[in-house]
Design a protein around this nucleic acid. Structure first.
Lengths: 172, 172
DNA sequence: GCGAGTATTCAGAAAATACTGAACAGCCGA
DNA sequence: TCGGCTGTTCAGTATTTTCTGAATACTCGC
């Protein structure tokens, strides 16, 4: 295993974490565990990633809370060790659900409420906001469906992807 | 038009902006313009939203850059006025494309590169990362397709949404 | 109960991000 | 050319988010 490509993976996973709304440290720890066969102790993690024990401890707590990291006890060892769950998707789904609920849903209902209060003659505003509302509602239904069942969505994703003919990206 | 429901819309749109990676001020200005028939001047915006001229000016610049706000000149007026483009989706698409390129694509290719460097016997790691890679690749293709054509994607979204039988949300 | 080794917490430090407002620039009419 | 009005910029400030590390808590063998 090439250690450079591994740390490249760890770092870019860290950056992408932001996309899902989790912070860099958490995402880096998660990536490190994903990429490592042996359970890692707190110290190995802080050494490898250069972060404080406190931060690592809190991140691991949260990662366990999301259900993507598990604490294991090695026989004859007092220290705690951590491994990644094989199931990476569950995290993404839970986080996505959470954010939808916190950010998307309130915006959609505020829009719907506002729509009912627009004056009759205000066609320009009404039209464009109705269009917007329709699209958001469509997205809402899709998300609801998609997030409701992890297993089904995995299958759906693979299926949909298979339907799309190959199309080279720029530069390939 | 009810002014309270309007400002509720403006504020929650501001919060949702974070989801798309745009900051609160930008999203609030955008929402205000979306919800207003008449072109607004800088001062009206800063008054209504309680922000500084400097901040508003920079946000408007960026909103114009994304192509969702247009500057108009009222005859006989020296000041600049701003209106929202009717097309709200274009912003979401462009921002999504940008973020995919900046955050998603590098993570996927780092993962792919790392996969090629995993030792033969490392089945556990290889298996789970291959699974992950497959899903990300599927997502990549979908996004590529979806983001490639705004018009087609709108249609697709509406169509897919129409396919989903109605399902009440909790509490409805 | 004590001490060594480890984990957790959290107040404060540091870093990242967003915002302000004063200085400056551009424009126009007098 | 000057003065008034408006827009833009950006150095500095405020706010938010993240991280650190010392204090504390826990656990186990003695």
């Amino acid at each position: 295993m090439n250690i450079d490509t591994r740390s490249e993976f760890v770092e870019s996973w860290g950056s992408m974490g932001v996309m899902w709304g989790i912070n860099r440290s958490m995402a880096r720890i998660h990536a490190l565990l994903l990429a490592t066969r042996e359970p890692l102790g707190l110290e190995e993690i802080t050494d490898e990633l250069g972060m404080s024990r406190g931060n690592a401890s809190m991140c691991l707590k949260e990662l366990r809370h999301w259900g993507v990291v598990r604490r294991v006890n090695l026989t004859g060892e007092r220290r705690d060790y951590y491994i990644a769950e094989d199931d990476v998707w569950s995290m993404l789904f839970r986080i996505a659900s959470e954010r939808k609920k916190r950010e998307f849903d309130p915006a959609l209902s505020a829009l719907q409420k506002f729509l009912t209060s627009i004056d009759e003659e205000d066609e320009l505003i009404r039209d464009r906001l109705e269009e917007l509302e329709e699209m958001l509602r469509a997205m809402d239904r899709l998300l609801q469906r998609f997030l409701a069942s992890e297993g089904a969505s995995r299958g759906m994703l693979k299926f949909l992807s298979a339907q799309i003919p190959y199309r080279a990206k720029k530069g390939e």
